[in-house]
Design a protein around this nucleic acid. Sequence first.
DNA 1: TGTCCGATTGGT
DNA 2: CCAATCGGACAG
Length: 195
Amino acid sequence: MNKKKLTHSFYMRPTKKVAQDLLGKKLVYRMNSKEVISGIIIETEAYLGVKDPACHSYGGKRTNRILSMYLPGGHCYIYLIYGLHHCFNVVTGSSSQPEAVLIRALKPLEGVSMMIRNRGITNVESLTDGPGKLCKAFNINRELDGESLLGDRIYIEHYKPNISLTYLKGPRVGIGYAGEAAQWPLRYFIKEPIS
DNA sequence: TGTCCGATTGGT
DNA sequence: CCAATCGGACAG
């Protein structure tokens, strides 16, 4: 099961399903031929496209920033938020459905020393426990926007945790402007600890 | 061209 | 609680 890259068909499924199923999977970033950074996905959020007031593509919006959302499932959608932090998303569904899954938190696995360097902190607990934090730890930025997750530079693998996982869900974070949609239980997370 | 503001974070 | 920090989005 491990070391098996998720395929195109995985990402083409309904966004909520992908968001939940990404929990416990392993995000791998190969900075170059030698250096590998990876972590287990422990928190995600689904963004449901044109019908979702919290989604950047709400109402069919199609601006330069969000063009990657209009790629087929299995691509990266990365944008800068608050002029300070990057957010990493996994594009889902067909190109006519501009939907994505935000990766909100990881449990660091490989390349921890590099994450510590990238983040400028030593506390491993808070290395990748937020969408902006994990991008900084992985040194991910908009240069990877639109990149395929089926290639060798960045991808997601199956992963077999050593313990059974407890799956939870709740309202998404930081989208108070979205009205009713702010209550939709589209945030998925795993109860710690994971090994 | 001008103004407003955000799928966050870190420090007070 | 609040500042940081900047580019996207949209109004004019």
